[in-house]
């Protein structure tokens, strides 16, 4: 399936949930109040994903090594199906991410975005910016000594 406007948005929020530090998604979901009624379609489980790289950065793919990932799928009483994929080994975060994914497909999307997704995205941006700024401070500024040849 090619990326549509709808799944581009969903891809973005699922990526945000996946990269949150352990405990963060479930803590922010709790801030939304009582969990909505749902059935668990696929209980939370921990597994791995084989990460691939490419020879010479752009050539043929090869297997680099695995990363731990937890996942879970649920269905809300309203029928919306949510899938949670989070890095690491947190079953509660995987289930919370599945609930957030489902809730984002409901009328509560705005509230969920503001309470759960925006803080995670802001933290991530801040963390990334802080590292980039430290890296920038270690950039070498070359200068040439005056040779006095003129």
């Amino acid at each position: 399936m090619t990326a549509t406007a709808e799944n581009t948005e969903r891809k973005a929020w699922m990526g945000t949930l996946a990269s949150a530090p352990a405990g963060r998604v479930s803590a922010l979901l709790a801030a939304l109040g009582e969990r909505p009624d749902h059935v668990v379609l696929r209980p939370a489980e921990v597994g791995s994903v084989m990460v691939r790289g490419r020879a010479g950065a752009t050539g043929a793919p090869f297997n680099l090594g695995e990363v731990t990932v937890s996942r879970c799928s649920i269905r809300l009483a309203g029928g919306e199906v949510g899938h949670g994929y989070v890095q690491g080994r947190s079953l509660v975060d995987a289930e919370a991410a599945a609930l957030v994914d489902a809730l984002m497909q409901t009328a509560r999307a705005g509230e969920v975005r503001a309470t759960v997704l925006d803080p995670i995205a802001a933290d991530r941006m801040a963390k990334r910016k802080a590292r980039a700024e430290k890296a920038a401070a270690t950039k070498v500024e070359f200068f040439t000594m005056v040779r006095g040849e003129d």
Partner: peptide
């Protein structure tokens, strides 16, 4: 002991957030 969920797309090191 871990079930494998699948394999990733090849990572894009051109988009790396470089520390070094």
């Amino acid at each position: 002991t871990l079930p494998r969920f699948g394999s990733s797309l090849p990572i894009e090191t051109a988009h790396m957030a470089c520390d070094r």
